[in-house]
């Protein structure tokens, strides 16, 4: 195995293109686990963290651009980002331990394409996009379209993600992410749920989106229109919960049963919607 440290996006693309067996290394918190367990044996790992810009968080068109090498801990320490997208940041901050936080990235979480990735539902609910660099230049892709199946992405040979973009949040909007795990830390989500809401000045929901993790082969977008036109009252959140339970298509495995995951999808939908609503009401434009 070779270890590569390209210093530009073009160099990284060139290396990845020349060697289809090479793997991108961001925080390494998935890659190195699988490497050591012998599940993968890449010909090279390409450390993208030394490429300029990869470790930056910057404001762009009222939204936020987060470099592919930014650790989730750094996101949690960024006051502006946290204020704009508390749900996205809380999803990112739920990944792993303090030690994992110091290394793990949202782009890595996304490209690992695990159905339970904690940062993904809130990015999807926020309509985030990924900037993909490749042999044919760069393109922006909806985050939702990056993972295709467990462990698989839509990235073509030679491509990698250079940054994630969170669009400018509308006035009176906010988001929340909750996951269910058996312990309080160090578990992979059994169900994850993000809700993103925009209200009018009076506090009525004008648009709502919801996405679920760990209840299908990839993150799910679920119709959240039950909340639109409401003030997130009990009847509305119950309807949202029913939609979440109905939309979930989980499997039985060591982490949970089908029935449990469907039930808990509804429970988390309710709880996340209420948090997002309170945040959106309190959020200044």
């Amino acid at each position: 195995m070779k270890f590569e440290t390209p210093h530009s996006v073009d160099d990284a693309v060139a290396i990845l293109r020349a060697d289809p067996e090479a793997r991108v290394l961001a925080g390494g918190t998935d890659l190195l686990v699988r490497l050591r367990a012998g599940h993968i044996s890449p010909s090279a790992v390409v450390d993208i963290k030394r490429i300029p810009g990869m470790r930056d968080i910057s404001q762009e068109d009222g939204g936020w651009r987060i470099g592919a090498g930014v650790s989730c801990a750094e996101m949690g320490e960024h006051a502006g980002l946290k204020a704009a997208y508390p749900g996205v940041v809380e999803g990112a901050e739920l990944i792993g331990s303090t030690q994992v936080q110091g290394r793990c990235t949202m782009a890595g979480n996304l490209c690992n394409a695990g159905p339970a990735g904690d940062s993904v539902p809130a990015m999807v609910a926020a309509q985030a996009t990924a900037r993909v660099a490749g042999p044919n230049g760069t393109r922006d892709v909806a985050v939702f379209d990056i993972p295709t199946a467990p462990g698989q992405t839509s990235l073509a040979e030679g491509e990698f993600i250079t940054s994630i973009f969170l669009p400018a949040p509308p006035a009176h909007s906010s988001d929340a992410y909750l996951r269910f795990i058996p312990r309080t830390e160090m578990d992979i989500a059994v169900v994850g749920c993000a809700v993103n809401l925009t209200l009018d000045a009076a506090g009525t929901v004008t648009s709502a989106s919801m996405s679920l993790g760990a209840v299908g082969p990839k993150v799910k977008q679920v119709d959240a229109s039950a909340l639109v036109g409401t003030i997130c009252d009990d009847a509305a959140v119950e309807a949202l919960a029913a939609a979440a339970t109905a939309a979930a298509t989980p499997i039985d495995d060591k982490r949970g049963t089908i029935a449990f995951r469907k039930d808990v999808s509804g429970v988390l939908a309710k709880r996340a919607a209420r948090i997002a609503y309170i945040r959106a009401k309190g959020a200044s434009s």
Partner: peptide, 23 residues
């Protein structure tokens, strides 16, 4: 060797990491 136990914890540029998950 999988980031779960923290027995390998060190600081890298002042940040905590699992040294088993750093090359």
């Amino acid at each position: 060797a999988s980031g779960d136990c923290g027995a390998c914890t060190v600081e890298l540029d002042g940040r905590l990491v699992c040294s088993c998950l750093v090359l």
